[in-house]
């Protein structure tokens, strides 16, 4: 029974979290803290912090975390399944339509309008990450993280000049950051 409840709750979260990422947070909170009292508000805050520190979408992370707390690994798997099910169905339909009709004039027009917008949205996310990485909350001379600024420049050179693997670049930054911390 608990499996069914977990599945249904996360199915709703998956279905109604439009816009992705943090747009899903209030929805998750309502389901797991208010409606079902599966975790406390404190645990929910911990969950957000952990989600920021670990890879993966926040909705999937919450599904795994809450499922684990309530019904063990089986619960985690069921909740995650519930969470991705709406995406699977809707995206499959969209994919089918896209590949079938992508040569239609009207769809070509729509996509031509969307491509530059997508680049802009990724750029916007990139700028936010860049500022957080180097300045934290707000851009001020005093809050500049010199280590991270150097790491950023190094990463940029690795990527553009030496065509380094992105994952390797990110890991190098993490390792160097610890080495600098331990040495100084």
């Amino acid at each position: 029974m608990i499996y069914l409840q977990l599945f249904w709750s996360f199915f709703q979260i998956g279905l109604f979290s439009i816009g992705g990422g943090y747009a899903a947070l209030p929805l998750i909170q309502t389901q797991v803290v208010q409606v079902h009292s599966w975790i406390t508000m404190n645990e929910f805050n911990d969950l957000i912090t952990i989600s920021q520190m670990t890879p993966g979408p926040i909705a999937i992370n919450s599904a795994t975390f809450v499922g684990n707390q309530i019904a063990g690994l089986g619960g985690a798997i069921i909740s995650t399944l519930g969470c991705i099910m709406p995406s699977c169905i809707i995206v499959s339909i969209l994919a089918y339509l896209y590949f079938k009709y992508k040569n239609m004039t009207i769809l070509q027009g729509i996509l031509k309008g969307l491509r530059p917008a997508v680049v802009a949205l990724i750029a916007s996310a990139g700028l936010t990450i860049f500022i957080t990485a180097i300045w934290g909350e707000s851009i001020q001379w005093e809050t500049t993280d010199i280590t991270n600024a150097c790491l950023f420049i190094m990463a940029m050179i690795m990527l553009r000049k030496f065509k380094a693997d992105p994952t390797l670049t990110m890991i190098s930054c993490g390792c160097l950051s610890v080495m600098i911390y331990l040495v100084f």
Binding site: V119, D145, A155, C173, C175, S177, V178
Partner: peptide, 28 residues
């Protein structure tokens, strides 16, 4: 240590995203 690794990785993530955005924007 976990915090510092993650903080440093942020710089790398920023670089990866900006690198790709640059290439894509150039294409447009």
């Amino acid at each position: 240590i976990v915090k510092i690794v993650l903080k440093g990785m942020q710089a790398g993530v920023a670089a990866v995203v900006i690198d790709v955005v640059y290439t894509m924007a150039k294409g447009i």
